[in-house]
Design a protein around this nucleic acid. Structure first.
Length: 637
RNA sequence: GCCGAUGUAGCUCAGCUGGUAGAGCAACUGAUUCGUAAUCAGUAGGUCAGCGGUUCAAAUCCGCUCAUCGGCUCCA
């Protein structure tokens, strides 16, 4: 489908939908480019591009819009590639897209780029910007394009063109000045439109994302419509760093990951453990409410069982093993096996199903050193794991119930999440028919629940497809927490059965699922979500007693006892310091209530709560304060 | 595992081209008894990540290992 554009000289031309006006104009007659762009859109004053829409309207892409930023950043990445090739002769270019908060470009160059090189590259980039080269689109036949890039020894570009689908006969390249890059476009009109950018980091990245390929050097950067927006973004990054759970974990004395203990092994300090305990207690109650049975299996199981389940063949590299009395045991990387044995301990009837086994199961996985990250990626962690054994016809309602549970839990903890459906991976077990059935079951449940999701091809577990729920950390990195995995294979391998209404044996289906995922990871994201200022029901310390002078200690101690007796987590700041000092300490610890206790309170039998935001609640009788905290806990605030 | 960077007191960091370690905050002790984000003074604290090498001499140079950080691949 084509649409018409009327140019300023009343010349009418039609162009395919999706093409930008800039490209359309360039394709038509590039010498009237500037006036055309400026005059094009009903008096809307814009710097960047316009895009053609279905409804024949020409919409401007503003430099502040998502689309506009993406175009701008893509153009900046071209300028960066151009600068890198100018500064470091012999650099080969590969690909350089815009991404959520910026852009990157992957290069091949013999020497590693350093942060010091950024200055040189940025300097050259500003020169290119100052030259205000127009971005000019040009279309070439495949053959011509291969010729062009082969001549420049751009092997990666040649490979990209050669790998294009057979029906692509024409490719586009963009020129700015004497630089030319293979690119689909669109771009901004000229390099001079670039006002604000910054190169941020350099990292390794495999060519085409495959670890068997050569490792390239990726330079990350970001760009904005103006300097102010760039500064705001950089400040935001600084703020995000203050929320980093690794930093808050130390400052709030929650946990440590100690080099002496080993990489990826978390040591919970008293306050961190208290937070974890609160979450775990909440979990147990919520699971019991929903018809789950609590169970518990051993940390190590004989290796033969892991062979039977398929873990030994498919997951061995990630497992720890130990040998005792000439028996090899596998330390569990997953909790399912014990649950299978529980199911098998009796003959099961269709009347018993579904059976839902829940375990706060601690697992060990030997993760590669390079992936370890605070609480988010560790080698020992505890999942709020459950295995549901049900009849195939119960799958849909079970999956829906889990999705509801996840939604409820995320609401309680204040997270938004994204949903992905991951399908069969390269290395997997089970029949095609079962994979088909399992994938459809998951997909149908999502559709029936009106849950929007994206499909992640080939990202399933080796034993089945899965639905993943992802939440974001302070730096917007997504972390998978909840997951639902559909498994026909393990029931098969363990020969699980139930007696149906027909008196015959049938095979149950198994769902593996977690709600919060790994407690460690969930706590990591939770810490960042609240920047350490936990809601009252979660706060390891809910209130702290601040004495004005030593003579208030006896009364404050009395109040402390009453609070503890009322299940309120209270601390004592009775040291010989000024009130201001103690307020500051409590503030830094992000404690919800600071109870000031001086002469007035001692005489009246009250406490004077101060909130984290500086607000004073005035004097309250102790009982009233207790009631207040209880109410906050009940409302999960 | 791969690419790159980093590792000095509990934390944040100084320590130039090799000559034997320093600040602020925190901690501890004492004085002060004080009303909503830092009272004053003093004291103590380091096999410079570990191991090995070069050197008359290594925090500093070289190698290996461990760990951390930013990514890639992988993943809860």
């Amino acid at each position: 489908m084509n649409i018409k554009i009327v140019f300023p000289d009343n010349n009418e031309q039609s162009f395919p939908i999706g093409m930008t006006v800039y490209d359309a104009i360039a394709a038509w007659q590039k010498d009237i480019l500037k006036t055309a762009v400026a005059a094009k859109v009903n008096g809307v004053n814009v710097d960047l591009n316009f895009v053609l829409k279905e409804d024949s309207k020409v919409e401007p892409i503003l430099p502040t819009s998502k689309e506009g930023l993406s175009v701008l950043r893509h153009s900046i990445s071209h300028v960066m590639a151009q600068a890198v090739q100018d500064v470091f002769k012999g650099t080969k270019v590969t690909i350089g897209p815009s991404i959520e908060d910026g852009f990157y470009y992957d290069f091949e160059y013999a020497e590693p780029f350093t942060l010091d090189d950024f200055e040189k590259i940025e300097k050259r980039m500003w020169e290119i910007v100052a030259a205000d080269y127009p971005f000019v689109r040009e279309e070439l036949t495949r053959e011509k394009a291969v010729e062009l890039f082969a001549e420049k020894h751009e092997d990666y570009k040649v490979e990209i063109i050669r790998d294009l689908p057979a029906d692509v006969s024409v490719v586009s390249v963009y020129r700015d000045g004497d630089y030319v890059d293979l690119c689909r476009g669109p771009h901004i009109p000229s390099t001079g439109k670039i006002k604000a950018f910054k190169l941020l980091s350099v990292a390794g990245a495999y060519w085409r994302g495959d670890e068997r390929n050569k490792m390239l050097q990726r330079i990350y950067g970001t760009g904005f419509a103006d300097k102010k927006a760039l500064e705001d973004y950089l400040n935001l990054l600084e703020e995000a760093k203050k929320r980093d759970h690794r930093r808050l974990g130390r400052e709030l004395d929650l946990f440590q990951v100690n080099e002496e203990a080993g990489a990826g092994l978390v040591i919970f300090h008293p306050k961190g453990m208290l937070l974890r305990y609160i979450i775990e207690e909440w979990e147990r109650k919520e699971h019991l409410k929903r018809g789950y049975d609590m169970v518990m299996g051993p940390q190590i199981l004989k290796v033969d069982l892991w062979k039977k389940s398929g873990h030994f063949d498919h997951y061995r590299d990630n497992m720890y093993f130990t040998e005792v009395d000439e028996q090899t045991y596998g330390i569990k990387p997953m909790n399912c096996l014990s649950h299978m044995l529980i199911y098998k301990s009796k003959i099961r009837s269709y009347r018993d199903l579904p059976l839902r086994y829940f375990e706060l199961g601690t697992v060990h996985r030997h993760e590669k050193t390079g992936v370890l990250h605070g609480l988010m990626r560790v080698r020992q962690f505890t999942q709020d794991d459950a295995h549901i054994l049900c009849m195939p016809e119960q799958l849909n309602s079970e999956i829906r119930a889990i999705a509801d549970f996840v939604n409820y839990a995320m609401g309680i903890f204040g997270f938004e999440y994204e949903v992905e459906l991951s399908t069969r991976p390269e290395h997997s077990i089970g029949s095609d028919a079962d994979w088909e059935l399992a994938t459809t079951a998951l997909e149908n449940a999502l559709k029936d629940n009106n849950i929007t999701y994206e499909v992640n091809e080939g990202d399933g577990a080796f034993y089945g497809p899965k639905i993943d729920f992802k939440i974001k950390d302070a730096l917007k990195r997504k972390w998978q927490c909840a997951t639902i995995q559909c498994d026909f294979t393990l029931p098969e391998r363990f020969d699980l059965s139930y007696i149906g209404a027909d008196g015959e044996k049938h095979r149950p289906v198994m769902l593996h699922r977690v709600i919060l995922g790994a407690i460690e990871r969930f706590m990591g994201v939770l810490i960042e979500q609240y920047a350490g200022a936990f809601p009252v029901w979660l706060a390891p310390t809910q209130c702290v007693l601040l004495t004005v002078t030593d003579k208030h200690i006896p009364y404050a101690s009395e109040v402390h006892k009453r609070l503890l007796a009322a299940d309120i987590r209270a601390e004592k700041y009775f040291d010989n310091e000024k009130l201001g000092y103690k307020i500051r300490q409590a503030q830094l610890q992000k404690i919800p209530y600071m109870l000031v206790i001086g002469d007035k309170e001692m005489e009246a039998g009250t406490v004077a709560p101060r909130l984290r935001d500086g607000q004073n609640l005035g004097a309250l009788p102790v009982e009233q304060f207790i009631a207040l905290v209880r109410e906050m806990c009940e409302k999960k605030k």
